[in-house]
Design a binder for these strands. Structure first.
Lengths: 157, 157
DNA sequence: CCCGTCCGTTGACAGAGTCCAAAATTGGAC
DNA sequence: GTCCAATTTTGGACTCTGTCAACGGACGGG
């Protein structure tokens, strides 16, 4: 997506049958500039950009943009929903169980491979969401140094 | 997993260093008998089985069982966490965007394939969660009959 | 039998998101 | 430029999920 200029955004909104409002423009721009951002943080940043926005409007804008396919919403366990503007490229996410860091990874298998499960049960599938769970390099290192000489330990949840 | 008899469960708990309590037994049995169940519903069902359980105890039991790998927690967007007792078989989920129905699907690509993304960024990956989003056959049918003769419509969220 | 640990209960609390009704804005028609 | 209907935004109350902390009871090794 990665659009920058307002005129582009105006056209984009119109194409999708959406009215153009300062709130929506700011929300879309903010997510575009800050991948994997929470709704709360969007509100904060938008406020620095246009002065004020209600929490509800942030949710409204995010919701309608996700509906129209301009944004994507991912929701890791134990974290509020995250939004990003990379859509339609079937990329996946790598999330650290400890610090919650999120990174993009391109699809391992090729082009939208996961859209065809072994047995679709008659579902009309439109998206495959893949999340790799693990520990990021930093948290791995921290844990190893902490466990030095300690006994076996169950990984925390 | 699919254990049914209490003696089996007792041993299972002990193997994992857990004390055996009526609450935990009931929670595990309930999830085993009701895949893709929410914590709230677990509480309801457990109450019909053993009379009473606190909300906190349900969360405690579910948490410890997930920690020990006896249960798995999945958390779809817009839904509370769901629990199931199929673990260690790397199966995935098919979720209907409209009615929220959840179904299991076996992994398309083979054995734990998604544990190796194209670029792991140094993460220690221990799980890959795959969710196929779409519309179940029922909701598809309902929608088609509703759209008969109507204009093009954006899919709702 | 004692003591430390584990477990269940209760109640307060927090975070994320939704509902609702009123006020304001948008955009098309004139 | 003005008007009007439809769409949006706003603010506040509210719900739903889940967590924290404190207390008391049960378990189990010694």
């Amino acid at each position: 997506m990665y659009v920058a200029m307002s005129t582009d955004l105006n056209a984009l909104f119109r194409q999708h049958g959406l009215q153009v409002t300062p709130q929506r423009l700011a929300v879309l721009r903010t997510v575009a500039g800050n991948p994997h951002i929470t709704a709360d943080r969007v509100a904060e940043l938008v406020r620095t950009e246009i002065g004020a926005i209600s929490r509800q409007s942030v949710y409204n804008a995010l919701g309608v943009l996700v509906d129209r396919g301009l944004l994507r919403r991912i929701q890791p366990v134990g974290s509020p929903a995250l939004f990003e503007d990379r859509v339609n490229d079937n990329h996946h996410h790598l999330i650290c169980r400890e610090c919650g860091r999120v990174e993009d990874v391109d699809c391992a298998v090729g082009r939208r491979p996961c859209l065809t499960p072994s047995d679709g049960r008659g579902y009309e599938i439109d998206e495959a969401e893949v999340v790799y769970w693990g520990r990021c390099p930093d948290c791995s290192a921290r844990r190893e140094s902490r466990d030095e000489g300690a006994g076996i330990r169950q990984p925390g949840q």
